[in-house]
């Protein structure tokens, strides 16, 4: 018998299926949207990390976050990623993505063939709740395009906090209720508020409690937090998940200023749709300058785009002469809320 060493084509190593990105030589899925026998998971956001898989490999923090959200039995087997690991006929490794606590990019190196990096959701702005993004050289770079249009240039979050503080000073008698996704955004917002000089208690909606506790356990000092569940909430700044704003929970606040922290708030029509009074442009995703800079730096042979407003990024790649293709994965939210 001869063993013929044939280098595999990229789409034999990783290709989209209805359940998510599948890697035949390793027999695993990355961030599958349906239950599968073996899943590698980039980060704990609900659209990437789902329960019910046979085996899950992820960073220790992502596994712990999944246990908080879904219960300890969220998967048959759990394996914390630690250095390069053999999975089937591939070697996989996890690298910080700068998106949320525990978030990672997954590098897939087949024995023979191109190296693919699946970046998941990633962000290159400094983020006090996440390890910074690490550029990982690769042949194929798989990127999100949540903010894949040149109109998205996320401002310095400190400037957005200045706007929040200005509003709190302008309307001192009104509580400021800011909507932020429970995992990542909420804790980042709290840290930004601390950096901006808000030392006093910040009230958090009950749905944030366990995830905030977990961040504190991981060494992220969120400062004094009080529950926003009592009839009377004694803090001018209150943070809640977006879903809370449709519930009767809001009714305990008399004449609040309602805000929302999201990259989408950069576009007025989006902010208006939300019906918010104080849109704050704070995002955990790469904006246009970051995604284009990342591709330029990594100089991959090919770019694959998982989800988002991919038409803009595809056009940019075309103008740069970089082969790019959309994977059009379904099941991922623009920016989870």
């Amino acid at each position: 018998m001869f063993t013929i060493l044939v280098s595999m084509r990229a789409d034999q190593i990783l290709h989209p299926t209805p359940a998510g990105l599948y890697c035949p030589p390793g027999d695993f899925f990355i961030d599958p949207v349906r239950p599968v026998p073996r899943a590698l998971i980039t980060h704990g956001h609900g659209d990437h990390a789902r329960s019910g898989h046979g085996a899950v490999m992820a960073t220790r923090q992502t596994l712990e976050i999944m246990a908080i959200r879904y219960g300890a039995d969220f998967a048959g087997q759990r394996q914390a990623a630690d250095g390069p690991v053999r999975v089937g006929g591939t070697t996989v490794s996890f690298h910080p993505a700068g998106h949320i606590l525990g978030s990672a990019q997954i590098a897939v190196q087949p024995d023979h063939g191109p190296k693919i990096v699946v970046s998941g959701d990633y962000c290159r702005h400094p983020n006090p709740v996440s390890e910074p993004y690490e550029p990982v050289p690769c042949d194929i770079f798989v990127t999100e395009a949540t903010f894949g249009l040149p109109v998205f240039k996320h401002p310095d979050p400190a400037g957005e906090m200045t706007r929040l503080l200005a509003s709190m000073a302008e309307f001192p008698e009104r509580q400021h209720l800011i909507g932020a996704y429970a995992l990542g955004k909420a804790q980042r917002l709290i840290m930004l508020a601390r950096q901006a000089g808000i030392d006093g208690p910040i009230a958090i909606h009950g749905a944030l409690q366990r995830l905030c506790d977990y961040h504190v356990e991981q060494g992220i000092d969120l400062g004094p937090l009080v529950p926003a569940t009592a009839k009377q909430v004694d803090a001018q700044l209150v943070i809640a998940p977006p879903s809370a704003f449709a519930s009767a929970w809001v009714q305990r606040f008399r004449d609040p200023v309602i805000g929302f922290a999201s990259g989408w708030m950069a576009v007025r029509a989006r902010a208006r749709q939300r019906g918010v009074e104080l849109p704050l442009v704070i995002s955990d995703h790469v904006d246009w300058p970051q995604v284009t800079r990342t591709i330029t730096e990594l100089a991959p042979r090919e770019v694959w785009i998982t989800h988002g407003t991919e038409d803009g990024l595809l056009r940019w790649c075309e103008l740069q002469g970089i082969p790019a293709r959309p994977l059009r994965l379904v099941g991922y939210e623009d920016e989870p809320e």
């Binding site: 249009l149 040149p150 109109v151 998205f152 240039k153 950069a266 576009v267 007025r268 029509a269 407003t309 038409d311 803009g312 056009r315 940019w316 103008l319």
Partner: peptide, 24 residues
Amino acid sequence: RVDEQLFALSYDFVGDLAETIALL
């Protein structure tokens, strides 16, 4: 200043000319 296709995609997304230009 901007590729015509990228401008068209942006304008389509933002929906307001002045705002699109301010952002771009």
